[in-house]
Amino acid sequence: MNNVNLNDDQQDCLQEIINVAMGQASDQLARYLDTFVYLKVPSIEQVSSQHLSDTLKSEAQSVAVVSQGFFGYEGIRGEALLMYQPKDSDRLADLLGYEPDELSVEEQIIDLSSILTTTFLNVFASQIDNQMSYSAPRLLFSSNADNNTSSQSSISEHIQHNAFNWEVALKVKISYQVTDYSFNCDMILLIPESAIINITSVIDRILEDY
């Protein structure tokens, strides 16, 4: 297996860049939902494509999973998986301020996913002197839409179909908790090793100043 090989300083710098982006994304989310978003320290770990399904198992109790690809300059790219675990999914429309029949739950989840992904990644990109474009968000699984499929099998199928074109990636997990609504969302970024090499060179330039 290849290795992403971030040293302690590079990992610390990446984590701090992610912290700043996460903070701004949560602020956007809090304003959009008119509530408070509780943040945890994000986790960063290396995963192999071979074992990705296993590593996502713990996150796979979701009621909905949305995928959105992102692409920047200099080969920086990856995929965001938004995994929703609302204890009370019926309250999503209430949370988003929609009338009951205005949009389907699936459309609401896609809307929210796009806001979270693009806000986070736009701030992330600006800190590494880059700019992102995005593919359309795609609902991989919803318990409302398909009661016969588990989120785990949907994700596994998605991974197999896309093949991801990487062996090793960094998995960044960010948890957004909206306690007022018992609403939880995990944003998982998968950044392949080729993109990490480019991000690392930017991180090294930042670290030169310290």
């Binding site: 912290n19 700043v20 996460m22 903070g23 701004q24 949560s26 602020d27 809090a30 408070f36 978003v37 943040l39």
Partner: peptide, 9 residues
């Protein structure tokens, strides 16, 4: 000094 810039925080 924080990145969690929500007004409530």
């Amino acid at each position: 000094i924080s990145a969690d810039i929500q007004p409530e925080m």
